[in-house]
Design a protein around this nucleic acid. Structure first.
Lengths: 347, 347
DNA sequence: CTGTTAGCGCCTTCAT
DNA sequence: ATGAAGGCGCTAACAG
């Protein structure tokens, strides 16, 4: 009837006794520290295995006694999504402080690779862990690798640098996100056929490029009746996005779908609204902000592909902490999922 | 440039010195224990406030030294969703054990209120916390309240008993889930008009009733062209669901949408498949299991409204732990969101 | 290579 | 009503 899920609580001392060694030796083996005869190592490991011993994290944390410092390197400037992440970090203040953790925000120009790289280099040695919203560029990659080599734990946040040796990426699979966007546009357009417009910040941004890739994949394979137009590059700016889209709308009468890959949402919505076709065109974009929430409620936007900024903030902290403590990462828990948000399931 | 998010790490001793009292007194004030003069209480509280002091959780946990026991009361029988929750709890074994927590599974007939109530009563006094998949019934409510009165922390899981004094509910908003289902059926049906069928386990189950309510809300207000048929009650059984739906399909030619509220998915899919109309009818159901995953990939199901079982398992444990420790609950983190899952964003 | 020992910060008797 | 002191389980010097 009742099946228990955990072993009984032994301590280091028990293992020491069972293996016929001292506390210190068990501790050494536990942390793979040198200075123990291979034979002793084996004996101790066996005792640990046999009892499936787990050191008490609270005791370890207390004994180690060191406060840990983490830095979050984030874009300067008013990006609502990034501001949400910062706000959620702020909400964790008590949680952090009860664990003697500190997190510091470092604002930088993440779109300029040399500035970003310099910001990262400047952190070297001062932090136990760094989370960074990264641009995928060789210079940035080198800076990340230098941090890693210096013993700092590094996680990329929202935007990855897969070729670097960062310990972990906290963010969504952007190709899958693009596919989800494509599926939504296609399904919501329904029987109609026509053209589909894409507005992105820049195809040079890795995440944007990946989203577009996924989007086109689905369009090509599943919705042959829809014709994807060349990508408009609005640099994530409202004005530019608006102008480009307005011009396109005025020339193409048979646009039935619109995918906004990045920011500049205000401009995109304006162009669409001014054209008077916001009810006919299926409009899918990214992230739930004050603006996109309003657009969804008004029926201008039909769906938003979103990543949960609170989850990303907390996952980044937890992953850095687990890495610093040498604990395993709960991959399933830290995975950032792609949420499809429509008017009726707005969070 | 760098803005820090945490206070410096003081200790109880620092507060004691500053307030001119001993460690023990600060500790008493911190935990609202009796035996301290009101005046002293004030002085100590001020010192705590002034420094925004946070006791170190690791030290507290270690000193308290007591292992904590939690029980999970879950439906007996082969419910894939519940099995997933159990599996995720199993994956937490190391995490639990490193914190000297144990969780025990208690299988019971959650659909029989007297059996369920008896199972709950039997736990009294033995556990620090109980998570229960609850039936909303006066007898169950009383059993929950008794546990709470006995000092046990209680969270309802997946299915709530709002009228009880449970400390927390870990699960989705089922009305919102029904609305999301309605919006999807309506939007995916597109321009067509016709009839929409609903298959539920029973309208007596609170979560099913709520989902149906939300579904009908959206249908009535947003999709007047769609006509919702009376609910078929399949008792979450494959056979019965199949028969009822097969009969309905044979009589109604113009069914364009289908909402499966609970389990019995296998039967629903079979009836739909046998009718040869699985590609024309928009089919939305709940939860991502091996079966629904397959149906989504085959294009039989169009979308699944899902709650993340891993998240629910971990949230239940974290909430029970926070309650037991007297820590605040991170509401935002523990909130269970409604996920819309389509073929292209299958997790 | 291995063992001994003094804390880490808090909680809990036990005295006063 | 308040204080003193030991100990929770582990880590990190320091001896040997």
């Amino acid at each position: 009837m009742a099946e228990t899920l955990t072993a009984t609580a032994l301590t280091l001392k028990d293992i020491a006794r069972e293996a016929g060694v001292s506390l210190a030796t068990v501790d050494r083996v536990l942390h793979n520290r040198p200075g123990v005869r291979p034979d002793t190592v084996r004996r101790v490991k066996e005792a640990i295995e046999r009892n499936s011993f787990q050191p008490h994290v609270a005791a370890a944390e207390l004994a180690r006694g060191r406060a840990r410092r983490f830095a979050f390197v984030m874009p300067s400037g008013p990006n609502p999504f990034m501001q949400q992440i910062e706000a959620y970090l702020g909400e964790m203040a008590a949680w952090l402080s009860a664990r003697r953790l500190s997190v510091e925000m470092v604002a930088t120009d993440v779109f300029d690779h040399s500035v970003l790289a310099a910001s990262l280099e400047a952190l070297s040695g001062d932090y136990d862990g760094v989370a960074v919203v990264a641009l995928d560029h060789p210079g940035v990659r080198a800076a990340i690798n230098d941090l890693v080599d210096a013993g700092t734990r590094v996680v990329t946040l929202v935007s990855d640098v897969p070729s670097s040796r960062r310990h972990h990426y906290v963010g969504i699979d952007n190709i899958a996100a693009g596919r989800a966007a494509g599926a939504l546009v296609g399904r919501l357009v329904g029987q109609r056929s026509g053209k589909v417009a894409i507005v992105a910040g820049s195809q040079g941004l890795r995440d944007h490029a990946e989203r577009i890739f996924g989007f086109n994949q689905v369009m090509a394979s599943e919705f042959p009746g829809l014709d994807v137009l060349p990508v408009l590059e609005g640099r994530d700016e409202d004005d530019r996005s608006e102008q480009l889209l307005a011009r396109l709308l005025s020339r193409q009468a048979d646009i039935v779908g619109l995918y906004n890959v990045g920011a500049g949402t205000q401009g995109v919505a304006k162009a669409l609204g001014d054209s008077g076709r916001d009810k006919q065109v299926v409009f899918v974009g990214h992230d739930v902000t004050a603006l996109t929430r309003r657009l969804l409620l008004q029926g201008v936007m039909d769906a938003a592909i979103s990543q949960n900024p609170g989850h990303e903030a907390r996952a980044a902290v937890r992953v850095l902490l687990a890495l610093a403590r040498g604990e395993p990462i709960l991959r399933e828990q830290e995975k950032i999922r792609i949420d499809i948000v429509m008017r009726d399931n707005l969070p």
